[in-house]
Design a binder for these strands. Structure first.
Lengths: 109, 109
DNA sequence: ACTATACTAAACCAAATGGTTAACTATTCT
DNA sequence: AGAATAGTTAACCATTTGGTTTAGTATAGT
């Protein structure tokens, strides 16, 4: 059983590395083997293996072993949680638009 | 002039620490001095000062000096960028709901 | 002029991060 | 049985991170 109750700390930390974000991106095409995940990167296989481990511990992917091949699958739940945290701040990046809207509302008589 | 063209790396990395997320949360109430930001935390003032520096380098806040007091202001733009990155993956955390929807659509004749 | 306030800077430390190479294990192919 | 494939593990390294304490600077109050 895998621990999915991971924290925002782990999620944001996992997302802070471009290699890991690219791995996540690749997993949108479906299940991908570790070899196929690793091949486009310049770094060594153990390095990619470590990144996958980080993503796994952050609950962002799961593995399934078939023979000697391990397939990784995206689990987007932590991404949802991160998005929910960010969504609260939408009111602050919308501020400029909001003030334009209210300006127009007040002056459109 | 401050460099606002910061990366997702910096944004997600800044967000991975709970102290920094709490600082961001406090800044939603308006401009806050560094002393007022620091007082609720157990850690030393220099520690908080470092966190604020990290947030500043990530473009998440700006400072304004008034006398000996420095006021911090939230800049939510990087949060928006992070949210946009995450938004793409919405289709994957919505998958279960989607498959329920399509199941119902296919069987509601 | 002195003292308190609101910080920053510097030096230090332990732990975590992101990479390497070399060696190992498990499975599959010939 | 032997060789190739698909990885993981371990040992190592340099850098970054998150904290500390001590000292310094700039402003404000008395």
């Amino acid at each position: 059983m895998v621990n999915y109750s991971v924290s925002l700390d782990n999620t944001f930390s996992a997302l802070s590395d471009p290699t890991r974000r690219e791995i996540i991106s690749k997993l949108t095409k479906g299940d991908v083997s570790i070899m196929d995940l690793a091949s486009p990167f310049e770094m060594s296989l153990p390095a990619v293996s470590k990144h996958i481990r980080v993503l796994e511990k952050a609950g962002l992917l799961t593995r399934k072993k078939q023979g000697r091949v391990q397939y990784c699958r995206l689990n987007a739940k932590p991404l949802h949680d991160a998005a929910k945290w960010l969504a609260f701040y939408q009111q602050f990046w919308d501020v400029k638009l909001d003030s334009l809207t209210s300006f127009l509302a007040e002056n459109s008589e």
